[in-house]
Design a protein around this nucleic acid. Structure first.
Length: 788
DNA sequence: GAGTTTGAAACT
DNA sequence: CAGTTTCAAACTC
């Protein structure tokens, strides 16, 4: 059975990637999503999918809760059926999620209760998602529905994000099966046979996941692979063998059951993809409590660039009766892959905080939001804050991920001292629980660059664990809403974290680029706000700089951006690249800079001004096209007049993309067949090759010299057999240089190509080195013979 | 490094 | 929306 109907199969990828086709849905004030870096409007649709995929846990239940009527809750229930629950947003409802570790069901406070379920027929194992905006999809879904007996239900949506692609998640409208037989989780018709769970990956491959369904709303994975992923294959012919058929439909800006009710802008947890077949990981669904009546805040963190894939590793919730809130550090990172992990910690934490509040209130879902980046899809993790949340920032040394820990005031101290382990897994796809105790969540901020930098070795084993020094760095987040800037939350600069403004700013919040968490940590505000029970920020910093996988934190956190030189804009206008990219100025050459925490009030105001002027001011200018293809284009197009669009004045050329029809440039030469462009490209390529060659040569030469010096390090007296480095005397060096110059002249006379000339010179240098070594060896032998 | 050119951003 | 000004980066010398 096809994972996706053929019609949709060819249709989906593009549409999924098409972010422009998806309308922005007004955001509710209480559920504000802060985009990090994206050209994708903050998705207002929510997808919540809870998945349990641990072999060890027989009681795993994936439950996603939707906060609003527009949300869709998907639950893996004991029956082989994949049950999708439409969230009937009720403020008092709680979402039950199964602890991935313990298998315990936990009620998340504030989460919308799933009151209605519609299940996918076990018989046909099909999920039909109606694409409302596409007649094709509709037809496809109809045809599929005929066999699957899936009923289309308005107002129920499933967000499907394109993995590895930027783009707004697609709202999948799921059929309501509440009235259908066999929908019930406790349905007695649950088959004991092991159903195969179809893993559908957007842009990826699909996998069959055998699942053991227990009659207790529990699903157990029989495979060692613990990842449960709902993925939609991109442009991949669906396998007819798939027992479960996913017919995906795209809903554009669906308003849900109640057209009068605006779609909640909050993004529910999403199931992301698992890319490494060898990696053991879990894809976990996050439950989103979407209650507009409740004061909630979401923290969007994530500067990301071009992650090919993002995996939400875990979203297990602690048992409802447990006061402990665990924090999982997402540390699994592979090249081209991002893993956002929010995993429930084990209850092993000795610290248990008794709280009068219902656990549901303490549990906040983590939202992972895909955002479009220049190079690829990006995901943001958004955390709604509890009534009085505090945020503790956690930084993993050597990683540019930024974690924000939400803790209650009463538990912060205990969390800080004992709840955070000092080790975390970095490699396995399965997140390692790093912290336990009162911590609610950890939110990774991941960028593609970060991934590349942090990425350890290729994941070959799920058991590889890299020990890192876990430090705690905190941001104290106010629990109150952010009325002042909420309207612009969805368009805040990429990588933005909301934090309280320092110095008692009346604004109340600080828009903090995630890249500058470190900066925040060093700010006086943080110091003052820091709980005494936590390690001093200085200690944290020192720990954070510990090398990870040979890469120091300093290296990994070095800003990739060039320093700005603003003089008049105070770095509070889009003239400033730092500001435009949602970053604080750091190590810049700017004058009178206000783009820092000290001037957060002004900065926030400036951000708002920019957003008022252009709601998409902080979104990437370069829209994301298909990967590997040239359809990336400038969102607005350039307006070049004199540069021919072949200089870096042109934003298109600078982004290494060709001008498009939306450009208003004059005399454009930046098009596919442009000879000028080709020439420039060839020159650039040649230059790049040369640089690479030279770099390689230098590296080799440096290595040889280093090796030589090592061998000639003084030691004859010590009997180590080394030669005295004094053999490399000035005379020897001069002679060597003469030889090299002679070789260069020779190659020049013979009109050798530069590459060949370089090779000849290097060879000559090698000969020189050999001669030196040989001579030194002879001297050593002579010396030894005379006992010198 | 200073000066010029350029085009996006900001302003009117 | 169009024209102008401001601004900082890119570029040239």
């Amino acid at each position: 059975m096809d994972v996706v109907s053929p019609e949709l199969n060819s249709l989906l990828p593009d549409e999924i990637m098409d972010t422009e086709a998806i309308e922005d849905i007004p955001h509710s004030q209480s559920e504000t999503v802060v985009p990090m870096e994206t050209d994708v409007p903050v998705p207002t649709e929510n997808l919540s999918i809870c998945s349990n995929a641990t072999l060890m846990e027989p009681t795993q239940t994936l439950t996603t809760s939707a906060a609003t009527d527009s949300t869709l809750c998907v639950s893996l229930v004991p029956s082989p059926l994949l049950t999708i629950k439409p969230a009937m947003a009720t403020s008092t409802a709680t979402t039950k999620t199964t602890d991935s570790v313990t298998g315990t069901t936990v009620s998340a406070g504030g989460l919308q209760k799933l009151t209605t379920q519609f299940a996918i027929s076990a018989a046909n194992h099909q999920i039909i998602l109606n694409k409302l905006a596409s007649s094709q999809a509709t037809e496809a879904s109809k045809s599929a529905a005929a066999s699957a007996q899936v009923i289309k239900q308005e107002g129920q949506k499933l967000l499907v994000t394109a993995i590895g692609k930027s783009g707004q998640p697609i709202v999948l409208q799921l059929p309501h099966t509440g009235s259908k037989p066999g929908v019930s989780q406790t349905s007695g018709d649950t088959k004991l046979q092991t159903p195969q769970f179809k893993v559908v990956t957007i842009g990826g491959r699909s996998e069959l996941k055998p699942m053991v369904v227990n009659p207790g709303n529990q699903v157990t994975a029989l495979q060692t692979q613990q990842l449960k992923t709902l993925q939609i294959p991109k442009k991949t012919p669906a396998s007819s063998a798939a027992p479960i058929k996913f017919i995906i439909t795209k809903t554009v800006n669906s308003k849900g059951l109640n057209p009068q009710t605006p779609v909640t802008p909050v993004i529910q947890g999403r199931v992301l993809t698992q890319t490494s077949p060898v990696m053991t990981s879990k894809t976990i669904t996050l439950s989103e409590p979407l209650n507009t009546s409740l004061p909630s805040k979401k923290i969007a963190i994530s500067p990301l660039k071009t992650p090919s894939k993002v995996t939400v590793v875990s979203v297990a919730s602690p048992p409802s009766n447990a006061s402990q809130k665990s924090v999982a550090l997402p540390v699994s990172v592979a090249l081209g892959q991002q893993i956002l992990a929010v995993q429930q910690s084990t209850s092993a934490s000795p610290i248990k905080v008794a709280t009068s509040q219902p656990s549901a209130q303490n549990i906040k879902p983590v939202q992972t939001v895909p955002v479009a980046g220049v190079g690829g899809s990006q995901f943001k993790t958004i955390i709604p804050l509890a009534a009085q949340p505090n945020v503790q920032q956690i930084q993993v040394p050597g990683s540019r991920f930024h974690y924000v820990r939400l803790v209650t005031a009463s538990t912060a101290s205990s969390t800080g001292q004992s709840s955070v382990p000092n080790t975390s897994s970095v490699q396995t796809g399965k997140p390692v629980v790093v912290g336990t105790g009162a911590v609610r969540m950890s939110v990774p901020v991941v960028s593609a660059q970060t991934v590349k930098q942090v990425a350890p070795k290729p994941l070959t084993s799920a058991t590889q664990v890299v020990t890192t020094t876990q430090t705690q760095q905190r941001l104290i987040m106010p629990a109150t809403p952010l009325p002042q800037i909420q309207p612009g939350f969805t368009n805040l600069p990429p990588g933005t974290v909301l934090a309280p403004a320092p110095g008692g700013s009346n604004v109340g919040y600080t828009v903090v680029p995630a890249q500058y968490v470190t900066q925040i940590q060093q700010s006086p505000f943080v110091t003052l706000a820091s709980n005494s029970s936590f390690p001093p920020s200085g200690a944290v910093q020192s720990q954070a700089k510990l090398p990870l996988n040979g890469v120091s934190a300093a290296e990994t956190t070095s800003r990739p951006r060039k320093p700005c030189n603003c003089t008049k804009s105070q770095c509070l206008k889009l003239y400033c690249d730092c500001f435009a990219n949602g970053e604080f100025c750091n190590n810049c050459n700017c004058n009178n800079c206000f783009n820092n925490l000290v001037h957060e009030t002004e900065r926030l105001k400036a951000i708002k001004t920019c957003l008022d002027r252009n709601p998409e001011a902080f979104k990437p200018k370069i829209g994301k096209g298909k990967e590997g293809e040239s359809d990336r284009r400038h969102s607005k197009g350039c307006n070049c007049k004199r540069s021919g669009c072949l200089k870096n004045y042109c934003e298109c050329y600078e982004a290494k993309i060709m001008c498009s029809s939306i450009c208003k440039c004059i005399g454009c030469k930046n098009f596919e067949e442009s000879p000028e462009r080709k020439t420039l490209m060839h020159l650039a390529d040649a230059a790049e090759v040369r640089v690479q060659q030279q770099t390689a040569a230098k590296t080799k030469l440096s290595s040889q010299i280093s090796d030589l010096l090592m061998r000639t390090t003084p030691v004859l007296s010590s009997g180590g057999g080394r030669l005295p480095y004094t053999f490399v005397t000035k005379e020897v060096l001069e002679a060597t240089c003469e030889c090299l110059l002679e070789q260069a002249k020779k190659s020049e006379l013979t009109r050798q190509p530069q590459v060949e000339a370089e090779r000849m010179i290097l060879e000559e240098f090698g000969h020189c080195l050999m001669s030196i070594i040989s001579s030194a060896g002879k001297v050593k032998a002579d010396c030894a013979s005379i006992n010198c």
